[in-house]
Design a protein around this nucleic acid. Structure first.
Lengths: 228, 228
DNA sequence: TCTACCCGTGTGGTCGGACCACAGGCTAAG
DNA sequence: CTTAGCCTGTGGTCCGACCACACGGGTAGA
């Protein structure tokens, strides 16, 4: 067993046993090293891994925000993981798009059966109507909209995976915008589809919302020739 | 920008540009340090992160298997990520189970529409019929069965997520076996459900396969009182 | 007495160098 | 030609040092 794994196991056990909680702090690197009879570089490697997994957030200085603070932020690690594996070309973009369709259409169906607060989502759509938005700005708002939709279903895991998928392919999406024959026309179509989706949700029509979401995503990626 | 992030960005760029491929090797830690004008500890932190993300596998010694070899193994990192976030209690077990149901029932429906090679899966089921299997042995075979099913749909991302979900909760599942009123009776029921699922797949009945898978998973976790 | 400044202290961030264990490949001896 | 043993380069680990940073309390001034 490598030395840095000692730290990982120790932290996982402490989390599971409740000795470490969100908002709490890890012992200092020097203290942890002495406690586990290993060197500070080994501790640091473990802390880096925990940071990369979204378990802690490190900061210099002093005070309650400094040091290694326990958080639980799964989105950025998942995003990084997906981006890297996409870069290896062993994760086909088509599979990612298919997964988005599955998760989001499920989320739409599930959300339709719940009491919803759609004002914030509608506000997002209003902001997407602003004239002169660049593709980049439009897609950032679009991402917010899709993440908010996924969140309405109330499953934190699916919402996190959804957001990570969206973030991981953001760069690829922007790079594919020139593939579209007419960006402005595409944007108009997307805006209309968004309105139709929240209208279906507001009516509680899960089947329609689910179908519209699936067609919305599939349509865009086919138009941008990104499904491969 | 922290120094170890230089290495991460460099590796991601090299992967995306095809300068690094699966099976290839990272430059040695000392060479990378000198090239990027940073210290070896900083490089090591980055390599650890890449290892934790399943991008490289490190080994000592010399020869083609030594050093930091590029792989693309997303399952163990995803598993570790899920396990840690489960340990923080900010990822409800119920959400994990719900996600499994979604992914696996989709996979079953999708697989039913494809030409399938079910011999290996049937062989797994035969091995699960062996008398005297411990709950641990049974669940390992069960995991293999579910992973194989998810693989039949042909989406590597969904298959990887499925396997990671299954692995991450494996410990919790085993710990919950005593909650079952009668393990032997439960095992008999699970075996029958497995047979029914592959029968539906063999007939190409996606609806039935999907429904059976969902009921199969939901039923077990409800019996084991693990859905909370 | 109150206020503003400043420096002490502890945090992570980085570095250079050293030594170890390991495994393959090369070389020299048989 | 075979084989045993050394050489070389890999990651694994450690030490000790110094830096940048930010809070917080102590102190000097109003």
């Amino acid at each position: 067993m490598k030395n840095y794994e000692l730290v990982l196991h120790r932290v996982e056990a402490d989390l599971a046993a409740g000795r470490l909680r969100i908002g709490g702090r890890l012992p200092g690197e020097r203290a942890l090293a002495e406690e586990l009879k290993i060197s500070r570089p080994s501790v640091r490697e473990a802390v880096r891994v925990l940071e990369a997994m979204g378990i802690v957030r490190t900061a210099t200085g002093s005070g309650p925000e400094a040091g290694a603070v326990i958080v639980a932020e799964p989105v950025s690690p998942l995003t990084a993981l997906l981006r890297l594996h996409l870069a290896t070309n062993h994760l086909p973009m088509g599979d990612v798009v298919q997964t988005r369709i599955l998760l989001e259409s499920w989320a739409a169906r599930e959300a339709a059966g719940r009491p919803l607060e759609l004002d914030a989502v509608a506000d997002l759509l209003d902001r997407m109507d602003a004239p002169g938005l660049s593709p980049e700005e439009f897609h950032l708002l679009d991402a917010e909209f899709h993440v908010a939709l996924a969140g309405l279903a109330g499953n934190v895991l699916i919402a996190a995976v959804m957001e990570s998928l969206r973030s991981a392919i953001h760069g690829y999406v922007l790079a594919a915008v020139p593939n579209l024959p007419d960006w402005e026309a595409t944007a108009v179509g997307l805006r209309g589809e968004h309105r139709a989706i929240i209208a279906a949700l507001a009516k509680g029509d899960g089947d329609a919302a689910s179908r519209l979401v699936a067609a919305h995503i599939q349509g865009f990626y086919q138009a941008a020739q990104l499904s491969s």
